[in-house]
Design a protein around this nucleic acid. Structure first.
Length: 278
DNA sequence: GGCATCCTGACC
DNA sequence: GGTCAGGATGCC
C-alpha cells in the first residue's frame, strides 16, 4: 500500500477538492468487510449522510476525513487501495467498493483490488485511541535523532521489522524502510540497539529524506496506488534498491541483494550497507 | 520470531 | 501450476 508519502499525497489532493463539501449519499459499499464493524453497516451509512467535510489529513498510514459532529472517517488503504476524486465523467469499475457522493455532484471513490482496505467511523475517543496506537510522525519537528534513538534503545530485534512496526514509528512501509536503510548505509538485519550514535543520526536523516522526496513526487506507484486525482505518482523512478535486486548499487556498483526478512521482500546493497557483527 | 490469513492480479 | 505484491493481525 500506500505508505506515508502516498497517504499524505492523497490527503493533500483531497483537501483542495472536497473540503467544505457535504456528503449527500453513500453508494456502492458492496464489500461490507471493509467497514470494521460490518454489523453496524446501516449505522455507518446513516451517520455519514449529511456530514460536512471539514478537513482531510493523515495519521501514520490512515487517511483522516474530518467531519462535523466530532466524527472522523478513517480509511486505511492497506496493500492495493486508492482514494480519489474521479473526473466528472469517471465511472467506477468493479474494484470501487465505496463511493461518497458530494453535494456538488462529484464523488470520492475508494478503489481496492485486493479488498484489504478498511474504513472506520470514529468519534473523538476513537480518534484518540487511533492516535495513541501509533508511534511518532517522522516528519514532525518533534521527531529528532534522540527520539529515534529512544525508540531503538534496548531493542535486540533486527532493524527492519522494528521500523515497519507502526507503534515504533509511524508511516514507514516496505519501500521506504529499504530505501532509508540504503541511504543510511545500514544493513536491515542489524540489531536495533547496536546502532552507533552516528548511525542513528544517519538513519533519522535518511528516513526524512526518502519520505520528503517522495511526497514532492506525489508518491510511488509500484502497482495500484493513485493520487487523490486518480493519477500515478512519480517517485518509483527514483528507487535506489527497492524492486531492483540484481541491478548495480547506484553508489558502489555491487549487485543489489534481495532476501526475505520477516516475510517481506528486502532489498539492500551487501557491500555498502554495514552488516551485523559476527 | 515464524507462519497463516485476508483478496486479486501479474508474471514466470 | 507457483510466486510475489506499498499491510496488519492473530496464533503457536
Amino acid at each position: 500500500m500506500p505508505e506515508l508519502p502516498e497517504v499524505e499525497t492523497v490527503a493533500r489532493d483531497l483537501a483542495v477538492q472536497v473540503e467544505g463539501r457535504t456528503i449527500v449519499a453513500v453508494e456502492r459499499l458492496d464489500w461490507p468487510r471493509m467497514v470494521e464493524v460490518p454489523e453496524d453497516l446501516a449505522a455507518f451509512v446513516g451517520a455519514l449522510a449529511g456530514r460536512r467535510i471539514l478537513a482531510v489529513g493523515r495519521r501514520a498510514k490512515w487517511l483522516l476525513i474530518r467531519l462535523d459532529q466530532g466524527l472522523t472517517l478513517a480509511l486505511h488503504l492497506r496493500m492495493s487501495g486508492s482514494v480519489y476524486v474521479p473526473p466528472p465523467d469517471g465511472a467506477p469499475d468493479r474494484h470501487v467498493h465505496l463511493i461518497l457522493r458530494l453535494d456538488d455532484g462529484r464523488a470520492i471513490f475508494f478503489h481496492d483490488t485486493r479488498k484489504f482496505g478498511r474504513a472506520r467511523l470514529l468519534d473523538a475517543a476513537g480518534m484518540a485511541a487511533l492516535d495513541a496506537a501509533h508511534g511518532p510522525e517522522p516528519l514532525e519537528d518533534a521527531f529528532t535523532p534522540a527520539t529515534l534513538g529512544e525508540r531503538l534503545a534496548g531493542r535486540a530485534t533486527r532493524l527492519k521489522p522494528l521500523l515497519l512496526d507502526q507503534a515504533v514509528i509511524a508511516g514507514l512501509g516496505n519501500i521506504y524502510v529499504d530505501e532509508a536503510l540504503w541511504l543510511a548505509r545500514i544493513h536491515p538485519e542489524r540489531a536495533a540497539a547496536d546502532l552507533a550514535r552516528k548511525e542513528v543520526h544517519a538513519l533519522h536523516a535518511a528516513i526524512r529524506e526518502v519520505l520528503t522526496l517522495s511526497i514532492a513526487r506525489k508518491g510511488s506507484t509500484f502497482r495500484d496506488y493513485r493520487t487523490g486525482y486518480g493519477e500515478a505518482g512519480g517517485n518509483q523512478a527514483f528507487f535506489n534498491v527497492y524492486a531492483r535486486g540484481g541491478e548495480p548499487c547506484p553508489r558502489c556498483g555491487a549487485p543489489i541483494a534481495r532476501m526475505m526478512l520477516a516475510q517481506r521482500g528486502t532489498h539492500f546493497c551487501p557491500t555498502c550497507q554495514r552488516a551485523p557483527r559476527g
